[in-house]
Design a binder for these strands. Structure first.
Lengths: 193, 193, 193, 193
DNA sequence: GATGAATGAGCGTTCATTCAT
DNA sequence: AATGAATGAACGCTCATTCAT
């Protein structure tokens, strides 16, 4: 533990720090974590951090990338190749996927994604960088769903709905899982048509 | 300007300050606006602010309420009474409403809403208060759409999709308005069935 | 309660405020009570306080006087005229008085007295005023004991010892009441000789 | 002066800062000295202070310890080994010691000790810490006198008297040194019997 | 490259005092 | 005389960043 980082090369160290930072952002919040926190978590001196990242924002950007990477892995793991023969059957499969995701998805990640993104809104250069990363990864995530719908817009709109629902859930709007599942089934079917 | 506030009573002043704060949060960000900023914007001393709000968080809560109020007004204004005779016709009407909203909606407001909400995530008591306000207003907004769908879950899911799309748009995901409109039409139709 | 002060004349009101202030100093500490606290405790506006006292220091001085008055009353009540015929007998009487006082004395008052006095140390004009009041009252208190000892210095030294013991007790120095009593008896006897 | 602290190690620096703080408390008062004052006095930035002390209270506690240390040194230096053969002789010796102490004692130190202690009265955790330190050192001081009296309570009561007299002197109660000396002689004699 | 003490600008909050009503 | 909103100076404390070692 004490020398976890000692054996890593510079790129690996950057990644290690970024991931620890992400954990801290999740635990304490973007506005509340400090460089000191990061240094302690990485068992490194505060000054050393600046050998890897120009400043705090650069560190946040790296943490954001780590987060997007994590989310992409999650989705790619969930979505195996569809290979459906009938429309109804594939609709059912996708409904299952969505429902499963909605219940098992670590919504904290999405919340953190949005927290970082939204706080960047007021710093143009920061926002530009994050937006670029965000688009890249989101397109990759969506491309998995596109295979199903044969339509990018359909995949995107269902994904948007999915994101919205996660937020609602997080902030206490009561939603019946059964009704959602039923509606998703309907929507998938009609969109795939 | 110099004595804008002089003629207002205490409740009006609170509202005035909350609205100015909301403007500042929009302009500078939740993490970056200061009590000093608010004081200057309101042409009032920093100390005076504390005659109206116990602390900065109380001010943020008030600004959040002002924001929700504003959003509610927006939606209530957009949604006129349905009065449809056929399913297809009403589907068309609602599609129009959604499309119009999506294009005219001041997405900054939704972004700000989420920014405030997400930053509260790490402060339980703050989050509890904001969540309460959020649910209250969102239920009111949704109730307008419920009239259309006769189903709360359908309204909610379309609203979730709407929110998600606003976020995507804000962060650079390209979406064709026509495709969205077409898909909304489909979804409304199949959900209303 | 709400109009306790309404029927009082100005001098009585000053006294009333001073006494409430003294209570607040005891409860919250000299460094921690605010003019706001006093106003609330007296059911009076903050501004009104300044019609009775020039500033906070003047209020503290008045509270100090109220405290000295209270202490004087306490001692005068305790010390009835001695009227002893033998030395041993009067020594016993005085020992009893001291012991009783030491166990029943509301040491908080003495602590408050010292708190106010010691904090004034760094403000010459304040200290001068308080010192004057202090001497006045302490001489009166001591004069009661002088009757017993026929010696001012003896009374004063026993009183000094008494004050010291109260402080020690307050700050956790363990003292056996029996030993103290025994020693006081010895000292009174030898000093009265 | 500019780099007085540069050559010291961390522990020495803490001590240096604590002592400077003690000076400031003596000069300006516990309620009036600021962290800024301390920083300037130590020729250090305000922020640096917080590398050595968690907060202002921690600094006050350290200053208090420094003060107690100083007082202990004073007493230990004054009290030489007794080595008396007759009661009268040793009584005389101790009387001399007390008188000398009473006239040479830097009463400001005792006043400061009490100022700090009394102001802590309203902050339980602070009081607990200071009380602990106070008892520790006072027991050490008293133990020196115990050797003389072979009685803890006698030593303690004379010490209490001594403290009381210092306070009285500070606040203008007139006392004749000769009478005090004479009385101390009597008391020592009768207590030692 | 690594360290961590030092910095200093900045922030939220408090509160005695004033003054228009 | 009474009010209480307004003031503004001050304070304790934080923290990203720097730099001598």
């Amino acid at each position: 533990m004490a020398n976890t980082m000692k054996t890593l090369d510079k790129i690996e160290k950057k990644k290690y720090i970024a991931e620890k930072t992400l954990e801290l952002i999740s635990k304490k919040g973007l506005a509340n974590f400090t460089m000191e926190d990061v240094a302690v978590a990485c068992n490194v001196s505060k000054g050393s951090l600046y050998n890897y990242f120009k400043n705090k924002n650069a560190l946040i950007i790296a943490a954001f990338s780590a987060l997007m990477e994590k989310m992409l892995s999650f989705f790619e793991e969930k979505i195996s190749e569809p290979e459906s023969d009938s429309l109804e059957k594939s609709a059912e499969i996708y409904t299952q996927i969505y429902s499963e995701i909605l219940s098992s998805f670590p919504s904290g990640d999405l919340l953190r994604l949005l927290e970082i993104l939204l706080n960047s809104t007021h710093d143009p250069s920061m926002m530009q960088t994050l937006t670029k990363t965000f688009k890249e990864y989101y397109n990759k995530i969506l491309s998995n769903f596109e295979k199903i719908f044969k339509s990018k817009s359909s995949a995107l709109m269902l994904q948007a709905m999915f994101d919205g629902l996660v937020i609602y859930k997080a902030f206490g709007v009561e939603i019946s899982d059964e009704e959602i599942e039923e509606n998703v089934r309907k929507i998938v079917l009609c969109l795939a048509k």
